[in-house]
Design a protein around this nucleic acid. Structure first.
Lengths: 330, 330
DNA sequence: TCATGTGGCTAGATCGTTCTAGTTCATCCA
DNA sequence: TGGATGAACTAGAACGATCTAGCCACATGA
């Protein structure tokens, strides 16, 4: 078993290069204050020893961590795309992302505390489920950005997509195709579910159509159940709470021998990877999650660095029409 | 905008409680050495001030971080289940998990370095793609556990599932049902793909059956493509590299008007959430990922704490028979 | 010639903890 | 009685970085 050697420190590098610790620090941070020749010498010594700065010590002293905490839910594949985008944006602005998952038996509070313990200078939370008050409390410590949810207090940043506009786009699309009997399968207790549900109601009523919403949820099984309950009283189109639910709906309809979209049109929400699969080709409302993620990271960085106060940014979603929506059955 | 107040330190608590810093430290860590009455006093003061220990300082001093670094791939929903299980196991052994994703434009090396920077005392890597040499190099710094891949050096721990046994179970199951014309859709360049492919070949040959493997990959689209290429020369059963590929296969077959399993049996691998969806009901080889994850975390902790050397742990997978495998068509 | 700057470098304090080595004081036992 | 024991507590040095202040040598300008 190879010996676990002690990690080299600034001191070791300094000795090897024959300079002071402080100078090594200057070189490693790339700030002015060292001659080019010694810079090389120090780099050489550091490389040789395999030196890596100890971020704990560094951060303890400088109080800057250049770290943005990101909480996500491990059970939402959709969040993975956001994580990807956040990494990219953070790194382009010179920050690192500290990840923490909300999982089975691991609450959001726990995830956030762990991010704070790592020294995150700001928090980006994907679809946070904490109350507005709790979020406010954290925002007393570091800037907090709520992603994909905007009913949060004034102290908290919010980067979200306009659910009302999204649902309107969906209803509009289906109505334009000629659908009159449209049902919404809601998201149950999921974040944003209520907003979408209400948006649906008001948009339908605004068009003089009957707004029927039935209970659903954020998963495939929820969609499946909803499809079963719709079997006997089939609408011509369904707007799902999200893509996963939409997939369940489609499967449920198929199981009853129905064709999509000739018998029923199905519209998803999120435009996730799932929707784009070539055998799914789900029409969906796109929130442009990667863009939102980048915007959230941007806000976090701006809050950390600048003097800007919190703000609520709302982007308008757009429709991606694929193959699960079409003219209603004759 | 609420003022970002300075975080209270041990010193503040000590002053408030009228004792020394060291004693507060003793109380906060819950170690013996303080009278019950002062313990209460200190707790009270800490609560009042909203004190939270600064983990950076704490860890800097104690050199223990109680942190296990976990690298995963954000594009593999399957990994999410492992993350969940790892969190649970780590926390039950008194450790925290530091997460780092391998994503688009973020290499595994980058992910690992970031984990080391956080001070991880061990690394658990899910299906690592680094070479055995690179893994060895890291294992000079901290214990490294490779999860779901076992062709790594002696210096690195490996917790994996027996691919040969897994494929054998699959072939056995199908052969027992009466299938003779079985095709394997491989995983392309994915980790473990080659092992499974070879296991398939040898198992089929051992039974005097022809071993046909065709190129695939780890995603739905790969399965879909494979299904198309099989259309004209349909086997009675297909063993996919994983569940996602199996799903693609099923969709591809369905698109050609074939029924699963009456026309073709399809067997997945991983027994992921997907497989369990009620409208999928995919028969699959289960690696029992959560169990493996727990085992990996256990090994990491044992390596950190004890004097055990690295070992390769191999578990035998088992078959989960659902509704996509059945007797061959007559 | 002498003050003034400036680039290159260093010593030592500092961040918020934990750890080591005590000190103090009451109790116990021969 | 007096030494040993132990519980409760503390001072001060670490941990590995960054930051502040200042030193030194040399160039510059009046």
């Amino acid at each position: 078993m190879k010996e676990q050697q002690r990690r080299p420190t600034l001191m070791d590098v300094a000795q090897a290069a024959g300079v002071s610790r402080a100078l090594v620090s200057i070189v490693m941070r790339g700030v002015p204050g060292a001659a080019e020749s010694t810079r090389q010498k120090v780099f050489e010594a550091a490389r040789e020893l395999g030196y890596r700065p100890d971020s704990r010590a560094r951060l303890l002293r400088s109080s800057r961590t250049k770290l943005i905490g990101l909480s996500f839910s491990s059970s939402q594949p959709f969040h993975a795309e956001i994580v990807d985008a956040a990494y990219a944006q953070a790194s382009s602005r010179g920050y690192e992302i500290a990840l923490s998952a909300v999982a089975n038996g691991r609450t959001e509070t726990r995830a956030v505390e762990s991010l704070l313990d790592f020294g995150s200078e700001a928090l980006v939370m994907i679809s946070p489920t904490l109350t507005a008050e709790e979020l406010d409390r954290y925002s007393g410590q570091v800037p907090v950005v709520s992603l994909l949810r905007n009913d949060v207090g004034e102290l908290v940043d919010a980067v979200s997509s306009d659910d009302i506009a999204g649902i309107r786009l969906g209803v509009e699309h289906l109505a334009d195709l000629g659908h009159r009997n449209i049902v919404h399968v809601d998201g149950g207790i999921a974040v944003s579910a209520q907003q979408r549900s209400e948006a649906f109601r008001s948009e339908m009523q605004g068009r003089g159509l009957e707004a029927t919403a039935i209970p659903g949820g954020p998963g495939e099984e929820d969609g499946l159940r909803a499809a079963r309950s719709l079997r006997d009283n089939l609408p011509t189109a369904v707007i799902a709470f999200n893509d996963r639910s939409a997939l369940g709906l489609i499967e449920g309809f198929r199981a009853s021998g129905l064709q999509i979209p000739s018998d029923v049109s199905v519209l998803g929400y999120d435009d996730s990877q799932l929707a784009r699969l070539s055998y799914v080709q789900l029409s969906s409302v796109s929130q442009d999650a990667p863009l939102l993620a980048a915007a959230a990271v941007d806000r976090a960085v701006d809050r950390i660095e600048g003097t800007v106060g919190p703000a609520h940014v709302v982007r308008t979603p757009h429709l991606v029409i694929r193959k699960t929506t079409a003219l209603p059955r004759a």
